[in-house]
Design a protein around this nucleic acid. Structure first.
Lengths: 204, 204
DNA sequence: CAATAAACAAACAAGATGGTCTGTATGTTG
DNA sequence: CAACATACAGACCATCTTGTTTGTTTATTG
């Protein structure tokens, strides 16, 4: 319990937190910029301004570091989800608002770009796969729950608002991958508007 | 022009075609099984039963081989597209049939799984990116053209059948990525049916 | 059949990557 | 202040990956 705030020195805890944060931030940046496969420990250390010895001290193996990075991605996205879900506390929500949230969460920043890299890598990576499976299921459940709060009546029997939400999630994920090679975001915005009008026209 | 079919020997042309085909097949298998990043020249040669010398003879660099593999993927998918497009020659097509084709083309075999690996890798790879950009645009155009052959009237102004098709493509691509970590294909089938009923209920 | 070219095999070289190891600096605690 | 634990720095090593090179086999052609 030594803050030592008046001196220029740092607590061990502070130093640990700082270097870990720098490593994770560099890892996320590299995944977004160079892709999952090109994200090596050396490049991470270089970008984070951390020696390789320090990295191996905090994260003994590369898996440790990458798992922590994926946890960080999930945590940030989950945080967005939580705030959005708690926004109109207990009240009824408009489906339109949910669409708007999903769109913004997909294309602001590079979080979803990182997540698509992780999902694709998880397909052929055991440890990553089991991790992504559970966290992704949780995220989709949370988003479906947002749909159930909407007062809409689905026209086709068996189609719920939650289903529409989940479909929208897959659509947006496909669009995020597309945005990696096609810069025409206006086209996607227009198509998403079509999607919204088609879906909302069918629900009441 | 020596066929030499009666002897046990092979023409140079035949040998070339055979080894190239084996290498490409092994490459596609590895991309589907291990992912883009784990697809190394050594593993390709090992799986193809081809020496590394032979590989470097036919494909001097790894890029050459991978580009040829991507071309093979695109070619096979384009072939599916062409046969499907030419099926009801010049006639009007049902939107339902197009949906069915898109679904089948996505989940039969592992072609689309490979394609998603390529698309994600293309985001951070210059040469791959320019290649994927043009071929993907062509494929989407071809699929949009199938939508334009459907005699449907879009209810929301500005929404064409082609737009619905393109939205469906992105939706299915998101689902393909999901299928890499979530084996519940029945869920996706059910959701896709929801999407279809939403659309067909909205179009006439 | 002889000469030439192509297909093929395998060893080698250069660089990158991830993990281990040894040593040093900094903070913590009795 | 002394003993100890943690954070950090950098060298080292085994492995893997890609590309080159050298030599051998097989097919083609005059």
């Amino acid at each position: 319990m030594a803050t030592s705030s008046r001196t220029g020195r740092l607590t061990q805890e502070q130093r640990t937190a700082a270097t870990r944060a720098r490593l994770l931030e560099a890892t996320l940046d590299l995944i977004a910029e160079k892709g999952w496969a090109e994200t090596t420990t050396q490049k991470i250390c270089e970008r984070a301004g951390v020696s390789r010895g320090a990295q191996t001290h905090h994260f003994p193996t590369k898996d440790n570091l990458l798992i922590a990075a994926v946890t960080e991605i999930v945590g940030r996205y989950q945080k967005d989800l939580d705030t959005a879900a708690a926004d109109p506390a207990g009240q009824v929500r408009r489906l339109e608002d949910v669409f708007e949230f999903l769109w913004t969460a997909c294309f602001e920043g590079n979080l979803l770009t990182c997540w698509m890299e992780v999902m694709v890598a998880a397909r052929t990576d055991q440890v990553l796969g089991s991790m992504v499976r559970v966290t992704d299921a949780k995220a989709i459940d949370a988003m479906r729950a947002m749909g159930e709060m909407c007062q809409v009546q689905a026209a086709p029997p068996g189609a719920s608002a939650s289903d529409i939400i989940e479909l929208t999630v897959y659509l947006l994920r496909g669009m995020v991958v597309q945005s990696g090679i096609d810069p025409d975001q206006q086209l996607r915005q227009r198509l998403f508007n079509v999607w919204k009008s088609v879906v909302t026209g069918r629900l009441t």
